[in-house]
Simulated assay, not measured.
Amino acid sequence: MTTETVRYRTFDPLKEEPTPIFRLFELVYGDSAAIRNRWEWEFLQNPRSREIRMLTAESDGELVAMTVRMPFVLRTDRGDEPAYFATNSMTAPHWRGKGVIRRLYDMAAEDGALHFSKGTAPAMYRQLLGMGYREIVPNTYMTCLLSPLRWVAAKAGCSWRQSEPRQPAVFADFADFAPVEHFEAPFNAPACFGTLPGPVRDVSYLAWRYHQIPHRRYQLFCRLLDGRMISFLVLRIEGMTARIVDISWDGSRQDEPARTLRFAKCFARTAGAVKLILWGTSEKLRSAASRAMFLKRAETPHFSYRPGTSGAGTPTWPGIHFVHGDGDVEYL
């Protein structure tokens, strides 16, 4: 078997049956239930579904590798530019090490845009570096212990009665926070999505990403002052672990993102979480998290990028705001 027998092409999820994709998932993961459950949401209901690029490699009529590029707009100090997250990349076991996935990544990069990868396994990360990808730092996780005693008890195998989550309205110190039930006003003109460099997200994207998703459940909040949205927060709580999936704020506010981080800790603790995990690249966010008792961990999702060919130079990454929810790692 050689790579000369491989046919590379673009697969159109809007027009083609996904059966070959499901079969490849079964070869790679032993099961295709996860991709079947999220297929319609991920590829057909996405607000930018027509711009999704799904690149595949076939041999003898069978799919042997694939990679997907999810489009977004990246806002930096040099303006807005098209970019993509690499997602759903995989190669059938008997085709690994033959250069197939590298060819797919090279095809994807022919558009000249910036390409990003997150949640990469160590072996694949080494391949990406060989393909011209570059590391983005800082890119490690940060963790805050919400209840050290409960954490020690859990480590020792002791049980602890978990309290029921309380509505944020009961927090007297956080009366300016409210649950997000509908992406209507004040999301029509939210200041916290227009002032931070990073992926640009509009209302349709947020509704798709956090409300319409079929296999994840999130806690969504916003901070309001005089009817104006100051910050936006997405939490996922599973057992004793809570994650800050998304956080954004009005960049002109001196008390942000510190106040929203304090609220996140308070709500997660009341919901029974023992630790709160944060991943983000923004220097301002990480500095505020350090002051809020978040500790840096060695673990990293290996966030990296492949430079575009526009000649515009490289953004200053510590000033760019990426979060855990960006890319596909959070919802796989």
Score class of each variant (00 low, 15 high):
T2A: 13
T3R: 15
Y8W: 10
T10L: 14
F11R: 01
P13M: 05
T19Q: 12
I21G: 05
F22V: 03
L27I: 00
V28W: 04
G30D: 04
A33T: 12
I35Q: 01
I35N: 04
R36V: 02
E40I: 11
F43G: 05
N46V: 05
I52H: 03
I52C: 03
M54P: 01
A65M: 07
P71I: 02
F72V: 08
V73F: 06
V73I: 14
L74T: 00
D77Y: 07
G79R: 02
G79P: 08
E81R: 15
P82N: 07
Y84C: 09
Y84L: 10
A86S: 15
N88E: 09
T91L: 00
T91Y: 02
P93D: 02
V100N: 06
I101L: 14
R103Y: 08
D106Q: 14
A108C: 07
A108Q: 06
D111E: 11
L114G: 08
H115V: 09
M124D: 00
M124Y: 05
L128C: 11
L129N: 08
Y133H: 12
Y133Q: 04
T140Y: 03
P148D: 05
P148L: 07
L149M: 12
V152G: 09
Q162A: 14
A169T: 13
V170T: 14
F171P: 01
F174P: 01
A175L: 12
A175V: 13
A185R: 10
A185S: 13
N188F: 10
F193G: 03
G194F: 01
G194A: 04
P199H: 02
W208F: 01
R216E: 14
R217Q: 13
L220D: 04
L220M: 11
R223I: 05
L224G: 06
L224M: 13
L225P: 00
G227F: 05
I230T: 11
F232D: 08
G239P: 10
G239T: 00
M240P: 10
R243W: 12
R243M: 07
V245A: 12
D250E: 07
G251Y: 09
E256I: 06
L261M: 05
K265M: 13
K265W: 01
R269V: 02
R269K: 15
T270V: 11
A271P: 03
A271K: 04
K275Q: 15
L276Q: 00
I277D: 08
W279L: 03
G280D: 04
G280Q: 00
L285G: 08
R286H: 00
S287M: 09
A292V: 05
A292S: 14
R297Y: 04
A298I: 13
T300Q: 04
F303D: 02
G311K: 07
W317S: 11
W317M: 08
P318M: 07
P318E: 09
H321L: 03
E330H: 07
